[in-house]
Structure formats: C-alpha cells, structure tokens
Computed example of a mutant assay.
Amino acid sequence: MGTDANIPAFVINLDRDIARWQDISGALTRLEVPFERIPAIDAKKRMTLIRRVIRRDFQFAPANRAMKAGEIGCYLSHIAALKRIVRKNLPAAIIFEDDAAFDVRFPQFYRHDLPRFLMTSDIVKFEGIHYVHTSKSGVSLIKGEAAQLVVPLKPALGSAAYAVTRTGAIKLIKALSVADRPLDHKLVYYDRHGIDFAETQPFLVRQADYDSSIELRNLDAPPLQPAERLRREVASVGRGAKRIAYVARLLIKRRLLGAKSPSAA
C-alpha cells in the first residue's frame, strides 16, 4: 500500500438519522473520500429479534450492568461494517459513525499519513474521547505530515473514526464475537484482542454536536465495595504490564521489519 491511496470508507447510519447522513456524505464528497453507507441496526426497535437470533446476555460485566439497546445496535453495526470489508476483499478501509466531523488537516492525513500508518498497524484510530484515566500521549511509531502514530498505554474511548486492514478486520470480527462491553472498549483493548493497534496524535476527527444515538450510561452507580475495588486495581496493574509488553513487542517488530526493508540496506 503506497501513499496517496484512496482508502474507501463505510459510514454507519440509522435510517431515521437523515440529517446526519446528509452532513457526513456531503463532507466525504468534498474530501473526495469514496464511501458507502452501512444501515445501522436499530436495536431499540429490533431487540426482540436480536435476542432471538443471538442467544446470549449482553452484560457489561466490568460495570456490573446490562448493555443499553443503543450500545448493542452500535456493536452489531460495526461488525456488519467489518464483514463488508472482508467480503469485498479490501486491503484496508475506514469505518465512520455518522456523527464524525473533520479537522482541517484531515485531507493531508488521509492522502499521505494514513496509508503509511496502516503499513505499521492493523487498527489506526483517529478519533477519541479522553477521560481522566486515559493517556493523551503514547510511544511514537511514525511521524507523519499531519499527525504522528502512537501507542498509548491507556487508549482513548470512542469509535467514530478508525481504519483497519483486512487482517485487522478479520481479527476484530473474531474478537467481537462475544458482546460483553461497548464497542469502543473492545476496539482499544489491544492487550486482550492482540491486534496491532495505534492511534493518532492529534485526533483528526471528532464527534459532532448531535444528540447521542446511544442512551446515556448510568452515572449514579453505587460505590464499589472494598473487595471489588481491590480486584479492579489488581486487574489494572495486570493490564498495564501486558500493554507495556505489547508496546515493546511492537517496537521490536517494527525495527526488525525496517531492517529487512530495501530502504534500510
């Protein structure tokens, strides 16, 4: 995959969200990004059918709650987009949610940086939501024209814009086979799904100011019991160790690949 590639995009959009579709389709047309609409699964209307076809509980275990209908629909819609990439045998593609809004530097990133970044990582995330527990920096892999590619130890959440290689799509479909947490959590947990993952700094896409299609999460959950708090702290240390080992492995692999490339001779 060389530079200046026209990487296609798939846009997840609910049938009722006509204004969103008009906005993002117009933006992508102006940006000269080839795109295709993926009809989003409206779990609020089709939950009975979903539970009949997928016989499992949609429980967000770490938060001790059931997944919301909107979260389930979003999750299944992303799987549909990933399967489209595999069926079309595309070397790489972008997945957008329909509330994506673009930075002025996005055209430069799309034309020049993204093709190079996808040669290093099977998932390149270029939109994200930071919280107090997420990293705003990371280990740098490549410096591009509009952004650099980094591996954060605590990735940002959000799933409005990311690119995957075909290999990444195949692996993600497998990783998403059990819906036990919202899609954005599964996407960034590279220590669990084991797919080469990185994100850009800065992010070149943000979520536009629309009302959320996903129900607000419960912010009034009861406080954690001491035993559960301790369990989570121990688990967090374990995840941190796995992520450090992952970053080290990725850097070693990148160095070995660079040593084998003709340009390094």
Rank of each mutant, 00 (worst) to 15 (best):
A43S: 04
L149E: 06
A169L: 15
E215H: 04
G128N: 00
D196N: 10
S140W: 09
Y189P: 03
A146T: 11
P34E: 01
V178Q: 07
L114Y: 02
L172M: 12
R84V: 11
D122S: 10
Y246L: 08
I18G: 03
R30V: 03
I54F: 11
A43C: 07
A235I: 08
P182G: 11
L76M: 02
A80T: 09
R231K: 13
F60T: 09
R243M: 02
A66V: 00
A179W: 04
V132D: 12
F96Y: 01
L49W: 15
L250A: 13
A245W: 10
L149T: 14
I41W: 05
D122E: 13
L216E: 15
P202T: 15
R52W: 04
I244Y: 11
L157P: 02
F117A: 06
Q207Y: 04
R192W: 02
D209T: 13
I79M: 13
I170L: 07
G26E: 13
P91T: 08
V33H: 02
G158D: 09
W21K: 03
A163K: 02
I38M: 01
A63G: 06
P155V: 06
G26D: 14
A161T: 02
R255A: 14
P262S: 04
E36Y: 07
P34Q: 02
D184V: 08
G73C: 01
F10K: 11
L28E: 09
R255S: 10
E36S: 13
V188M: 03
N89R: 11
A80K: 11
I195P: 09
V188S: 05
K174E: 15
A146L: 06
A93I: 08
L90W: 02
V164K: 00
Y210N: 10
K125T: 07
R51F: 06
I7Y: 00
F58S: 13
A161L: 00
F203A: 01
A66R: 01
R51S: 14
I54G: 02
A156L: 07
P107S: 12
F106T: 09
R255K: 12
D209S: 12
F60C: 10
A93M: 06
S213D: 05
L82F: 12
V151T: 04
R65W: 00
Q59E: 09
K174V: 06
K125G: 04
N89T: 05
T200Q: 15
G70D: 07
A161D: 00
S212C: 04
K83P: 03
A5Y: 01
D184A: 13
I142R: 15
H78I: 05
S212H: 09
D98K: 08
I252L: 12
T200W: 14
N13D: 00
E127T: 04
A208D: 15
Q108C: 03
A101M: 05
Q22K: 06
Y246H: 09
F10L: 14
F35H: 11
A9M: 06
R232G: 06
E199G: 03
L153C: 05
G128P: 00
A101D: 07
A241T: 01
R52I: 06
S140R: 15
F109P: 04
L82N: 10
G144D: 11
A179L: 10
I85A: 02
I94A: 03
K88A: 14
E97A: 01
L187N: 13
M67L: 14
A43N: 04
I214N: 05
L183T: 09
